[in-house]
Computed example of a mutant assay.
Amino acid sequence: MEETYLLNVEGVKKKILHGGQGELPKPQDGSKFTFHFQTLKDDFERTVIDDSREAGMPMEIIVGKMFKLEIWETLLSSMRIGEVAEFWCDAIHTGMYALVSRGMRRIAEGRDPLEGQKHRCGMGNMFDYHSTGYEDLDELQRTPQPLIFIMELFRVEDPSAYKRDTWAMSKEEKLAAVPVLHSEGNRLVLRREFAQAAAKYQEAVICLRNLQAK
């Protein structure tokens, strides 16, 4: 398909690599996108920066939950289920990618994505970091540049159709979830289900850290 600018979005070009099925989804606040993605540099080699398939898990984002790379909501909202599309995005849309990628990589490595993050907005954190811990991301952080995103959209779920993870909850929902998770952990300890109990306690801790990071 011929490359075209997305409607009313400056600095973005889209090319459909594989057509999707059905009507264009109509996500609302709280809807969840599930998709695979590749991030490439806009250089001669089309250097791959990240690949969710290599990480072993698809990406999920919740509409309206202040995801640091807001342009992804726009890109995904232009896709049908099963569609594979390539997007070229100018540097005006990619300045936060290094921080987003850092968090995703740490999660894939089983590490805390918020470790070392100060309690400031995303742009403030970008200037606080001396290093992301990844050489290629440090380069992107120093010199924001156009990037290419190849995305395959699997599904779009309404807010009522899935159980939300704690990171996708509002502040009030997180505060209410912490004692519930703690109680569930205690109950599992009494049943000697220690691994499951540890997971509940960890979820409660992550919930608190997310609240502190706001």
Rank of each mutant, 00 (worst) to 15 (best):
F67A: 11
K13V: 11
A98G: 13
T74A: 04
G82R: 03
Q38I: 07
D42T: 00
D50A: 11
V9Q: 03
G56F: 10
L114C: 04
L69M: 11
M57S: 04
E60N: 13
V48T: 13
G116D: 07
I81Q: 05
D42C: 09
R46P: 04
S31H: 03
A55H: 09
M59C: 02
K14P: 01
D29K: 07
A98V: 01
D43T: 02
L75V: 00
G110R: 08
R120F: 15
P25H: 12
F44C: 15
E60Q: 10
Q38K: 10
K15N: 12
G11M: 13
K68A: 06
M79Y: 00
I49N: 03
E109H: 01
L69H: 03
I92K: 05
V84P: 02
K32C: 04
K14G: 05
D42E: 09
A108W: 01
C89Y: 05
H18T: 08
G116P: 01
R120A: 14
F37C: 11
A85N: 02
M79G: 01
R102P: 14
E83P: 11
M96N: 00
E86N: 07
F33N: 02
G122S: 03
A85R: 05
G95S: 15
I62P: 07
S77H: 04
H36V: 14
